[in-house]
């Protein structure tokens, strides 16, 4: 279903959900939950957004049913740990590549995805200061290295 323009801020989280559909359904579920919560705040009144969000809610309900034997879905505290670990794993991979001077698309994507998953952590409550800093650093690094590679410059 096409994403209405008002809901554009959640497009990357929805893409991450799609990419993890088979690889890690727990990541996929919480990315959609974040998108749902955020989408409702952005616009749940106009018909196109309502239609989109109702569809997203249908998807979430059916995922929850399918994953009913998974503790990371049935207990949000376990889900919180799962998403945080996954986000940190991506961050550490990208950070290691960065420190080793290996700059490539995959590490840029890992930095960016870890920052998106730190957004997702906000469904469980206020982010820790450490996660806020990680998110800021990861998003800045992804943008900076992306721009360097695009302009044929070496990241410092």
């Amino acid at each position: 279903m096409a994403l209405p323009a008002q809901l554009r801020p959640i497009q990357h989280h929805l893409r991450t959900a799609q990419e993890h559909e088979n690889r890690d359904p727990v990541v996929s579920y919480y990315c959609r939950l974040y998108a749902m919560q955020t989408g409702m705040k952005l616009d749940s009144k106009t018909p196109e957004c309502r239609k989109f969000l109702v569809n997203l809610m249908d998807q979430l309900e059916s995922m929850k049913k399918e994953l009913s034997d998974n503790e990371s879905i049935t207990q949000e505290v376990v889900g919180n740990a799962h998403i945080e670990n996954y986000a940190l794993k991506l961050f550490l991979y990208a950070d290691n590549e960065d420190r080793a001077g290996r700059f490539h698309k995959n590490m840029i994507k890992s930095f960016y995805s870890s920052s998106l998953l730190m957004d997702v952590l906000s469904v469980f409550g206020e982010l820790s200061e450490e996660n806020v800093q990680h998110r800021k650093y990861a998003r800045w690094k992804a943008t900076y290295i992306h721009n360097c590679l695009k302009n044929g410059e070496s990241p410092q």
Partner: peptide
């Protein structure tokens, strides 16, 4: 007609909020 449309919109919004709470086991 516009007030009917607005009532329908707000009922649908409530429905979404309730479904979200149920999904998260908050009801």
């Amino acid at each position: 007609t516009s007030s009917l449309a607005s009532s329908v919109a707000s009922a649908e919004q409530d429905d979404l909020s309730q479904r979200l709470s149920r999904l998260r086991g908050q009801v």
